[in-house]
């Protein structure tokens, strides 16, 4: 991400240098979070709108905390999906928000590409907070930050991405992000939960979690939507758990340094055993903590006065 980058729509917009730049800035902002008064004036006078077409308590709280720590003003445009299904067009909604004068809009939407469309219509910076099955770039950045904190350089590290890949924006983002940082990603899922065509994906694919568990540096579990059973992607959630869940037997086969990660919210007993989720190398709480600092870095880079001022501003604060 450079000074002229305006939006964060996809992790694929970022090359390795840009990702490292954000992660390095994240370190500085993580330090802000540990201060007695965890607040800097970096975005004072800037206004950020939350445009959440899909419920998301944790992502929204994380962005809000980040914005507050940067002293930005925020506006909330939460829209429940039912009220917009037959109502005004996305473009009309966005025009209304922009007319109030905003510098940034953080978008969560059930449909892939919603932030991309919005970015064509507004002058403000658009930040994708998750769109359909497509992308969730700040999730990927916080995952990379958490992983680097424990494992250092990710070059050559092996990541098993397990579960419902097909319907997962986290999977699509993380495949890009982790491979960009030099890691090797293996998708682990039954065929029914994989995208139709993986020829373009820089990944290995297996249906057998046990075959990769012993060599994994990160076992990354995806949330299994409970309705997937009704839709017959798997016969039962119990069978999914038995074949593709991280239970304590499988967790014990992970190398001692390996991390267990999950984007949340977890379904204990489905993709992960309750006891496994509480193991010391399960770093879900750290992921959440990293989320605030990562989002501070992203908001600052996109809405702040630019990269060259970063050190100065953080230091002055």
């Amino acid at each position: 991400m450079t000074n002229d980058t305006k939006h964060l729509l996809s992790i694929a917009d970022l090359d390795r240098d840009a990702i490292e730049q954000i992660l390095n800035l994240t370190e500085s902002f993580a330090e802000v979070g540990e201060r007695p008064i965890p607040k800097v004036p970096a975005l004072r006078g800037k206004t950020i709108a939350w445009l959440f077409y899909e419920d998301s308590t944790r992502t929204r709280l994380s962005f809000e905390t980040a914005a507050k720590r940067l002293s930005a003003d925020t506006m909330n445009f939460s829209v429940s999906s039912s009220s917009v299904s037959k109502g005004e067009s996305l473009r009309d909604t966005v025009a209304t928000i922009e007319a109030m004068g905003i510098d940034g809009v953080v978008v969560r939407h059930k449909d892939a590409g919603a932030p991309h469309r919005i970015s064509e219509w507004v002058d403000a910076s658009v930040i994708n907070a998750g769109d359909g099955w497509n992308q969730h770039p700040t999730q990927t950045l916080l995952d990379l930050h958490t992983a680097r904190t424990h494992l250092g350089d990710l070059d050559g590290r092996r990541v098993a991405l397990v579960g419902d890949i097909k319907h997962s924006r986290v999977a699509r983002s993380n495949v890009h992000g982790f491979t960009q940082m030099g890691a090797e990603v293996t998708l682990v899922a039954p065929r029914t939960l994989l995208p139709a065509d993986l020829d373009d994906w820089p990944v290995e694919v297996t249906h057998d979690l046990d075959s990769v568990i012993e060599e994994s540096d990160i076992c990354y579990l995806l949330r299994m939507q409970l309705e997937r059973q009704e839709q017959s992607y798997v016969p039962t959630l119990r069978e999914f758990h038995n074949e593709w869940g991280l239970d304590s037997r499988r967790a014990s086969k992970l190398p001692p340094h390996a991390l267990i990660m999950h984007p949340g919210p977890m379904n204990r007993g489905v993709e992960i055993d309750g006891s496994v989720a509480d193991l010391p190398n399960a770093v879900m709480a750290e992921q959440v903590t990293s989320g605030v600092a990562v989002r501070m870095a992203v908001l600052f880079l996109l809405l702040g006065s630019g990269l060259d001022l970063v050190d100065e501003k953080v230091a002055a604060a």
Binding site: A112, G113, D131, G132, W133, N134, Q135, R169, R172, P195, A196, D197, L198, D199, D200, W201
Partner: peptide
């Protein structure tokens, strides 16, 4: 169309 592009974009496809 369900294929490479839909898989990459995360747009639901039809074969």
């Amino acid at each position: 169309h369900e294929g490479r592009v839909s898989s990459s974009l995360g747009i639901p496809g039809q074969p």
